[in-house]
Design a protein around this nucleic acid. Structure first.
Length: 205
DNA sequence: CAATGATCATCG
DNA sequence: CGATGATCATTG
């Protein structure tokens, strides 16, 4: 797919290209999943379970920098006593990722945006250490009932941010006194400066 | 609602 | 103008 445009891929799949991504935010990712034969659905698993590979598109600017952070997975806010990093969804999802950089500058019409060179990535021991540290810090705060005091400033490469259909969505979490509270669902995201470092490592920029 | 796919829109 | 917090579509 490298070098081809999203318009070409959409045409071969007989899909309409939306006017913009405002009401189709996951369109690019789903188009690429379709072409690579990933199992559609909303299962909390890797995109290619047989290969142990997770697929993620990476929106990049003209200068090749990621334009957005990368969503990893929903953060568990309850039932997290004793959860270990090795058994976490974050660890599982990021153990092997096929990154597919895609042009995403606002001045390029969606159909004309090109797919860059994908690369397969497995975190280095140092990256795993960094991910694990961030994850443990955030999970500890959640476990201690401090989820509502977590902001996106926490975590060096992995951050926690709201992840929901809107601000009214609520889920259960642990409160400051160990009681059950209602709060906005959160998700783990990779900071763009981290995904940029992955691009620099692979393409020796 | 929770999970998938993410980008939008506003603020500092 | 980058990052945070908010939001969109869809499926089970």
């Amino acid at each position: 797919m490298s070098g081809h445009t999203l318009g070409e891929l959409a045409a071969s799949a007989e899909l309409e290209v939306p006017a913009n991504l405002r009401r189709a935010k996951g369109w690019v990712g789903q188009l690429l999943e379709l072409h690579l034969g990933a199992t559609a659905g909303s299962k909390p698993e890797q995109d290619f379970p047989e290969l142990g590979v997770e697929l993620k598109t990476l929106p990049i600017s003209h200068s090749g920098k990621p334009q957005e952070s990368t969503f990893v997975c929903i953060a568990p806010l309850t039932g997290i006593a004793g959860v270990r990093w090795e058994a976490s969804n974050v660890c599982n999802k990021l153990s092997c990722v096929l990154w597919i950089p895609v042009e995403a500058s606002a001045d390029i019409p969606l159909a004309q945006r090109r797919i860059a060179t994908p690369f397969l990535w497995q975190p280095t021991p140092a990256q795993i250490h960094q991910l694990r540290q961030d994850w443990e810090e955030l999970m500890e705060m959640i476990a201690l009932g401090e989820v509502e005091s977590i902001t996106a400033h926490h975590g060096e490469i992995l951050q926690l941010r709201p992840k929901a259909a809107n601000g009214q969505a609520l889920t259960h979490a642990i409160g400051r006194n160990g009681e059950m509270i209602q709060t906005r669902p959160r998700g783990f995201y990779l900071r763009s400066h981290f995904t940029y470092s992955l691009l620099r490592d692979v393409f020796t920029l």
